[in-house]
Simulated assay, not measured.
Amino acid sequence: MNKVRGIRGVLGVAGSVFGAVSAVKSLQTARKDKDRLLLVNAVAGILAAVTGVLLTIRAARKDDK
């Protein structure tokens, strides 16, 4: 069962990284086009990705105890 949790953790981090990459691309587009709404959306996406990684790390630490 521990192996499944490890795989789930890796997939969680991978999903968050993919979301962060997408948000950074949106951020670059928003800055280039000077689109404030897209900029806010990109920042929110980056924050969500960071939060996802932190939650995955916390869950992995709890599993180790």
Rank of each mutant, 00 (worst) to 15 (best):
V17M: 09
V24F: 14
A14P: 05
V50T: 10
V24S: 11
R36I: 09
T29W: 08
L54I: 10
A30E: 01
V21L: 14
S26N: 03
F18R: 07
A14H: 08
R8E: 07
L47P: 02
N41E: 09
F18T: 08
R31A: 02
V40I: 08
D35R: 06
L39V: 01
V4F: 00
A49Q: 02
G45C: 02
K25Y: 06
G19M: 01
D35E: 00
K3Y: 09
F18M: 09
A42Q: 09
R31W: 05
V53T: 14
L39F: 11
I46F: 04
A49N: 05
L38R: 11
V17K: 05
K34L: 10
S16N: 00
S22I: 11
A42C: 02
N2Y: 00
G12A: 00
S22H: 05
K3N: 15
G52S: 08
R8P: 05
R31V: 03
S26W: 04
K34M: 11
A48G: 08
I7F: 14
L55H: 00
V4W: 08
V21H: 11
R36D: 12
A30K: 08
V10A: 15
T51A: 14
D33E: 05
L55G: 07
G6A: 15
I46C: 02
I7T: 13
G15W: 01
G6M: 13
A20R: 09
A30S: 05
N2A: 06
R31F: 04
N2I: 01
N41M: 11
V24M: 13
T51Y: 01
V10E: 15
A20M: 15
L37Y: 12
A42L: 04
V24W: 12
N2T: 03
S26Y: 03
A48I: 04
V17Y: 06
G9M: 12
G9K: 14
A30L: 03
G45I: 07
I46K: 10
V17W: 01
R31S: 01
L47F: 04
A14M: 11
V43E: 06
R36N: 12
L38A: 13
I7D: 14
L27V: 10
Q28H: 12
G19R: 06
K34D: 14
L47G: 08
V50P: 06
K3M: 15
V17L: 05
V4K: 15
N41V: 05
V53K: 13
G12I: 05
G12H: 03
T51I: 03
K25H: 04
K34I: 06
K3R: 15
S26T: 05
V13T: 11
A42M: 01
K34S: 12
A23F: 00
G52Q: 07
N2E: 03
V10S: 15
V4Y: 07
A23R: 04
V43W: 01
V17E: 08
G15C: 07
L37C: 11
S22L: 09
A48F: 07
V53R: 12
G45A: 02
A44L: 06
G52D: 07
